[in-house]
Amino acid sequence: MTIFTVNKTINKTIYQAFGLHFDSEILLPELLQRQDTQEADVNIEIQDLSEWRSVVNTRENNFTMQSIGFMFEIPNTALFCIQDGKRIGIHPFPDADMDKIRLYVLGTCMGVLLLQRGILPLHGSAVVINNKAYAFVGESGAGKSTLASTFVQSGFQLLSDDVIAVSYENGEPVVHPAYPQQKLWKESLDLFGMSEDQFKPLHDEVSKFAIPVTKHFHNKTVPLAGVFELVKMDSEYVAMREMNRLERLHAMMLHTYRGALIPRLGLKQWHFSSAAALAGELFALQILRPTTGFTAPELMNQIMRKIYQEEMQGDTIYSTEHFN
């Protein structure tokens, strides 16, 4: 079978994301490049996986754990293999859309890779407020990226969009920066008065666009201070409520990126323990928002007031610049 090939004599490109260094045989313009020669944590390679294709195709949903690594196939695109959190192998199919291949490398592959490395990937967006990370999680379409974009347009910095990489440093949860890009649906662009002609679609099959945020990207790891779960409801008003520990545990498990793959990875116990540890110490609120209307500015104001209250209780000096 013919596959996409790469000239092995060319230099690989070194990138950084999620607190890791990547040595890649494919161009990943979304990621920040590194100029040093530090040894990579992860290699992204074109790999001949043809002998495994029949095995993958016999598994439900084309996702399977094999001796070589965790594998999955996207029809007419590529066969992917993630190995021990250290390597992503890509077997492109003929005439594959490289934009779509990159989408899965930066999405599902990264999610599996982080899980394999013991880094909890939450599904959502994270912004920096007062030198701390706050994450917005929720089901697809809940408005996570739109809310994060509202913060960015108000002068705050983005840490991550779609995949939030959470680990521990010195016993405290931290969020590692992803890359300076947001993914917004056309409907969100319209709400912000942004023209889709200015941005590149993620790939030809979806009306979701890549929005560069280079000037508003925070490229350093910061402590995770809180999580806000967005839930759509049939109401005219925005409501906010604190979650108890059991609800926080449920939210952390429910909103783990590619959580459905965890049993196949053999990580159910690790996932429960990691989610429970995070739920036990995290400040977390559930935000109930109407199913219709552009509520992101109101949500931002309510979130900022709540964070301000929490900071004041902790005797932390906090700027009130964005409350006016």
Score class of each variant (00 low, 15 high):
W52N: 12
A178M: 01
P173V: 01
A276R: 12
T150S: 13
D315I: 05
S160Y: 09
F199Y: 15
A210K: 11
L103W: 15
G226R: 05
N11A: 10
L31M: 15
K183H: 13
E196I: 08
S160T: 12
I119A: 02
D161M: 02
P297S: 04
I164F: 08
I74M: 10
F136I: 01
H255N: 14
T108R: 00
R289T: 08
T108D: 04
E51H: 11
Y15N: 02
Q35G: 10
G118D: 09
M252H: 10
F294D: 10
I14S: 13
I119L: 03
T221A: 06
M71C: 15
F72A: 00
A178L: 06
Q198M: 07
N62M: 09
Q302N: 07
E25D: 11
V128H: 01
V174P: 01
T221V: 07
Q182I: 01
E321C: 00
F294H: 14
N57R: 13
F18H: 13
H176Y: 13
F4W: 14
P201M: 04
L249Q: 09
S319D: 15
L32H: 08
L113S: 08
L113G: 03
D234E: 12
F272D: 03
L103E: 15
S140G: 01
S140V: 04
L113W: 09
F80Y: 15
R34A: 00
Y179E: 02
E281D: 12
R102E: 06
V166E: 11
T77N: 03
D315W: 14
A251R: 00
I303D: 07
M300E: 10
G69A: 03
L114V: 06
Q35E: 15
L278H: 06
E30A: 07
G280Y: 12
S50P: 00
G111H: 08
L79Q: 09
D204I: 07
G293M: 04
M1F: 02
Q198G: 00
L299D: 10
L299A: 06
F199T: 01
D162T: 01
Q153F: 06
Q35M: 09
Q35Y: 13
F4N: 03
Y257Q: 08
Y179K: 04
F80G: 03
L285C: 14
Q38W: 06
M304Q: 14
Q269F: 04
P223N: 08
N57D: 14
E229I: 03
M98N: 01
I287H: 08
K12W: 08
F93I: 00
K306W: 11
Q47V: 08
K215T: 14
